[in-house]
Computed example of a mutant assay.
Amino acid sequence: MEEIIKIKETCLYIKDLEAARDFYHNKLGLEVIHYDRGRHVFFRAGSSVLLCFNPDDSKYKDSPPPHYAEGNQHYAFEVSRENYETVKEKIKALNIEIIDKLVWKSGQESFYFNDHEGNVLEFVPEGVWG
Rank of each mutant, 00 (worst) to 15 (best):
E70M: 14
Y35D: 00
E97L: 13
L28D: 06
E3N: 14
V103E: 08
I7F: 08
R44T: 14
L102V: 00
G118Q: 04
S48F: 10
G130H: 15
H74V: 11
R37T: 00
I91H: 02
P64W: 08
H40E: 05
E31A: 12
E3S: 11
L102R: 00
N83A: 14
P55Y: 10
Y68H: 04
L28A: 10
I33F: 02
W129Q: 13
S48E: 12
Y68I: 04
A93R: 12
F123N: 06
N72S: 10
K90D: 14
V32K: 11
K90R: 13
H25D: 10
A45N: 07
E3G: 08
E18M: 06
F77R: 02
C11K: 08
D36R: 06
V103Y: 07
T86L: 15
Q73S: 12
P64L: 05
E122I: 02
E122D: 01
S58M: 04
V41P: 00
D16G: 02
D57L: 09
N83V: 14
A69E: 09
E3Y: 11
H34K: 09
L121R: 01
Y68K: 04
V124E: 09
F77C: 09
I33W: 03
E89Y: 05
S48D: 08
D22P: 06
I99H: 03
D115L: 05
K8A: 07
E9V: 12
